[in-house]
Write a protein that binds this DNA or RNA. Structure first.
Lengths: 138, 138
DNA sequence: TATTGTTATACTCTATAACTATA
DNA sequence: TATAGTTATAGAGTATAACAATA
């Protein structure tokens, strides 16, 4: 693949992601906050695990969790097996926030998809496993 | 395209872009700063134009320009035709910074591409015009 | 009066360093 | 002694409101 092609593809991925990110349910929800909620939707996690996944420091994640907890979107509870640890769980309200965020983002993206030809949409579907490989590297 | 597919594609685009963005020449360069330098690489622009393009407020852009100017990466000059306006131009040092950033990001991305099959790389090339349509909407 | 740029001030997010509690 | 979480403090980025200069 030509150097220029790599360059353009890289920039297009960034710009497309930025456009998607701008469609957020609540303007006060940062990427990290949304990332935490999305992660907790699967299962509870400790603050350290969340910090590592979001690539922020533990103190920074702690502050993020304070805000999310005060907003009633997550709850903290001591780990029964290891009293040093804390288990963070998403609340019903937190689930509602990510559902709304997902709806808004997908809505905007679906509008863009509707403007494409069937062949172009097929190309997008075909690129999914390739992006998965790149995104999940390491 | 199925709802779940739209959802996964959207998240994959974001995660891939985040991985790319983490490969930045200078850790002190924010997205906005890099966006300004990349934009000015093409041609000079006014602070207002830069603010609109980066989707930040004029005061915020002004502060960003102060930092970039102090670092010697851009220069400001009065517009000869309209004394209210200011023309921002990238310097040699600024061009060097984006060249290095582009090199580092493309390097990482090229390593990921090398792990793909020829067919997968062809799929990525095919998706470029589709992403262009989505990214450049509006 | 409208436009362009800027300054003043405050809030959010993040980091490093230091502290507390438990294993 | 090591680990998990937290608190204290500081720096960067952004926003709103207000001000200055020019069209």
């Amino acid at each position: 693949m030509a150097e220029d092609t790599v360059d353009e593809l890289r920039m297009l991925l960034q710009r497309t992601a930025r456009r998607i990110r701008n469609n957020r349910a609540d303007g006060t929800m940062s990427d990290t906050k949304m990332g935490v909620l999305f992660r907790l939707e699967g299962s509870p996690a400790t603050p350290s695990q969340l910090a590592e996944r979001e690539r922020v420091t533990p103190p920074s994640m702690n502050r993020t969790l304070n805000v999310l907890e005060e907003a009633g979107l997550v709850s903290r509870a001591p780990d029964p097996d290891d009293a040093r640890k804390v288990v963070v769980t998403i609340t019903r309200a937190g689930e509602a926030v990510i559902a709304e965020t997902r709806r808004l983002r997908t809505e905007w993206f679906s509008e863009r998809l509707a403007e494409l030809t069937p062949h172009e949409r097929a190309t997008l579907e075909a690129v999914i496993p390739v992006l998965r490989h790149i995104a999940e590297h390491e």
